[in-house]
Design a protein around this nucleic acid. Structure first.
Length: 294
DNA sequence: GACCAGGTAGCAA
DNA sequence: TTGCTACATGGT
């Protein structure tokens, strides 16, 4: 076993593990008390994920982020949790808007995530018309049913399935897992990736709007889900997914940004939320509104 | 028992 | 292009 510690006080803008993992951005981590999205902030609980066959466990106690892993996880954790983002700078550059400022102030330490592309893509296909807690239980079921199992220091961990593994699933099986009408979308998208027809990671090389367009070729992926994958996996920090909460925010706080179509409204709200880091502002506002401003 | 949840595909006009 | 509507499921 390899272990390590990071000092969050050394990170520009600090870090809050709970906010980062439980703000509805990622569905590829598990909380080891099994009660993610339960509402209350748990003290020093472990979270785990599996990346490229390696188990990674992390927990935060005060300013210390502690980890245990099957590998040297320090660089992986920095990447997955965007620990090298200069949060102070991002907040400083945010527009002087009351709602945005309020959200940034209320949830300091919340960072974006950088999920592995395939897992992120499937997670957000599952997310359509679903609450975050159920999206999480769906991805957990997929991992248990179709992913590799890895033992580490006692317990068994489940990797999110590879495209090949998920492509072996049938629509009927996934409906039994509770995916509902998303079941065929997941199967067909997994097949597309497994067959080499397309890969979400390829969008990384494109310009933002071309990248969004590229991702919509996957079944079950429209503009909103594409924006989520760009923001939470591919490093497009300007992406602003227009979900129900952000649409409400536009209606109540930025009505002039409603331009009818997704593409034009997206352009307007991205500008309003600060351009290159608009996705960061979006994530804070989303979490702020969804949790009732706690 | 409605209503809703990080929407999309398919089809008509 | 734009504007419907059907689509599963579980929690409140």
């Amino acid at each position: 076993m390899e272990t390590g510690k990071l000092s969050c006080a050394d990170l520009a803008g600090g870090f809050d593990l709970y906010l980062t993992l439980e703000s509805g951005q990622t569905y590829l981590w598990r909380r080891e008390d099994g009660d993610m999205y339960g509402g209350e902030r748990p003290p020093g609980v472990w979270y785990s994920t599996v990346v490229d066959g390696d188990v990674i466990r992390v927990r935060q106690q005060g300013d210390v982020l502690e980890w245990e892993s099957t590998t040297d996880a320090d660089p992986i954790i920095r990447r997955l949790l965007c620990l090298d983002d200069d949060l102070d700078d991002i907040v400083a550059r945010a527009p002087p808007d009351p709602l945005i400022r309020e959200a940034y102030d209320a949830h300091r330490g919340l960072r974006l995530v950088e999920d592995p592309p395939f897992g992120c893509l499937i997670s957000f296909i599952c997310s359509a018309q679903m609450r975050v807690s159920r999206i999480h239980s769906m991805t957990a079921s997929l991992a248990v049913e179709y992913g590799d199992t890895i033992e580490f220091d006692g317990p068994t961990y489940h990797a999110f399935p590879t495209p090949d593994q998920l492509a072996t699933a049938t629509e009927a099986e996934l409906r039994d897992l509770g995916l509902g009408y998303r079941a065929p979308y997941v199967v067909r998208t997994a097949e597309m990736v497994a067959d080499g027809e397309a890969h979400p990671g390829k969008a990384r090389d494109l310009e933002y709007e071309d990248a969004r367009e590229y991702l919509t070729q996957f079944v079950g992926v429209g503009e909103k889900v594409a924006d989520c994958v760009l923001l939470f996996s591919l490093g497009f920090e300007e992406a602003v997914p227009l979900d129900t909460w952000i649409k409400t925010a536009i209606e109540e706080y930025f009505p002039d940004c409603d331009r009818g179509s997704y593409a034009e409204t997206s352009k307007a709200i991205r500008k309003r939320l600060g351009g290159e880091y608009a996705g960061y502002a979006q994530t804070y506002v989303f979490h702020h509104l969804r949790t009732g401003g706690r």
